[in-house]
Design a protein around this nucleic acid. Structure first.
Lengths: 118, 118
DNA sequence: AGCACCTGCTAATGTTTTTTTGCATGTGCT
DNA sequence: AGCACATGCAAAAAAACATTAGCAGGTGCT
């Protein structure tokens, strides 16, 4: 088996920012136990559907979960979610390695504001 | 060598929330190349000292970096920072494993608000 | 004394998240 | 028709975070 391709700096921040939330971590954990549909997941986690949907959308945007809309035998439209099998190693070095691909406002450009600070 | 102890749910969120910021990631990356003092680091990264200090404080609170105040031979007080050699594997399973120790507002307690949603 | 560096803190401001509320739509069953 | 479930979206309120600006204090050198 080979190591999964390391994320770019931007992907890394997005991933970290997405996982840096209790609700979203719980969602990932819950889905690790198997796929489910929105309403059911909301009941399992004890949060409102509206809130859960927002979190699911962010997780999906970060590519941490994926969804597929299915029609249950009794005609109900249900959206099932499942986790994406991601794997990222977080260490000072892995972070340093991702920095060159971080495009977030890089101050090391024209801006300069030191000197008369005191 | 053995695997470092997995973080608790709370430590995990704190760590993720702390790293989920471009500036802080750059700080970690910069320190990976060796320790430095605040003002120098601010110049290297091209950001204000005030801003850097705030970020350093958060990184330190999360235990990702540590500092030691030193007096340079010419009498200047300088605060050196260095990275903590952390290592966390981020996968659906590692996250699920940390959930039982996540104390952030756990809806699955007394609260109950389903039923008349529509 | 005045300048160059170093550190630290806070109040105020701007921005971005997070959560709630409310409304719309659709199917099946009684 | 009315109830139970499912989905989706968006505006508005609340809370958390990021950044700036300004002030304080200290050492050494010219």
């Amino acid at each position: 088996m080979k190591t999964p391709p390391p994320p770019t700096g931007d992907e890394l921040v997005l991933m970290l920012a997405t996982l840096a939330n209790p609700h979203r971590l719980r969602v990932v954990a819950a889905l690790t136990g198997g796929r489910t549909y929105v309403s059911q997941l909301a009941r399992d986690l004890g949060i409102s559907r509206a809130l859960l949907q927002v979190h699911l959308k962010k997780l999906e945007t970060a590519g941490l979960v994926s969804a597929q809309l299915e029609i249950s035998p009794d005609g109900k439209a249900m959206k099932f979610y499942e986790v994406t099998p991601f794997a990222v190693q977080l260490t000072p070095d892995s972070i340093a390695a991702a920095m060159p691909t971080l495009t977030a406002a890089d101050p090391a450009q024209g801006r300069d504001g030191e000197g008369s600070d005191r």
